[in-house]
Amino acid sequence: MHSTAVRIQNAFGFFTTIAFFVAALTALSTILYPANPSASINLRNIKVRTGRPHYTSTKSQEYLLLNFDLDADLSSLFNWNTKQVFAYLTVIYGSSGTANKHTENEMVLWDAILPSANAAKLHLVNEQAKYKVNDISGKFLESNATLRFEWNVQPHVGALCWGSIEADSEGNVLSQAEKGKRGKWSFQIPPAWGKKPATKKAAA
C-alpha cells in the first residue's frame, strides 16, 4: 500500500495535475491583456517585370517588384504568455471576370519573427519585398491589389491567435489619418514593362 512505487506514482500524478492547471490558467490569462497594435504603410515604386523562375526554365512569368515603408507597433501583443509574434505583410488581389482561374489570391511579401516587445516596434524605410512575388498563373492581369499587415501571436502554452490591419474599410483607426497621404494600402498592379495597359488594348 505504502510502497515506494505507489508513492512515486502519487507524487507524479500530483505533479501532472498541478502542471495541467497552471498551464490551463496561463493559457486563459491572455484574455486579461487586450492589445492595441497599430501600423501604417506607404507604398513606393510598384513595377511588374517579366523573368524566368530558374535559368533552366523556358517559361517566363511576371514578377511584382515593390518597395514600401512600414511603421508598426506590436509591442502591446507581448504579455507573459507570448513566446513570439510573427509579423507579415501580404498582398491580396483578385482577378474576377478575367481568364485567370484563381480569383482570390494572397501572398506574403515580407515577414519577421519578433522575439520581444522591444523588437516589435518596426520602422522600415524603402524596404524591398523579401520574397519573389509571382502569380500561380504567371500573370497578374492588372488586378486591383490591397496590402494587409497581419500578425500571429504564438504563446508559451495555449491557443494561437491572429490579427490584421487592413486599409479598405472606412474609419479604420489604423490607417493613421494623421499621417496625411501616407498610409496607401491599395493599388492597381501595373502592366509588365514594355506592355501596353489592358484598357488601352481593349479600346484599340
Binding site: K101, H102, E104, N105, E106, M107, D111, I113, D135
Partner: peptide
C-alpha cells in the same frame, strides 16, 4: 506556415508553405 493562397471557383485551394526558420519555401 502558409505563405501563398490561390483560390478559384473550379480549382482546388492551392497553398504554398514555408518553415519560419527555413530560407526557402
Amino acid at each position: 506556415r502558409v505563405m501563398r493562397r490561390h483560390k478559384g471557383a473550379k480549382t482546388p485551394l492551392n497553398l504554398l508553405t514555408k518553415g519560419d526558420n527555413n530560407y526557402a519555401d
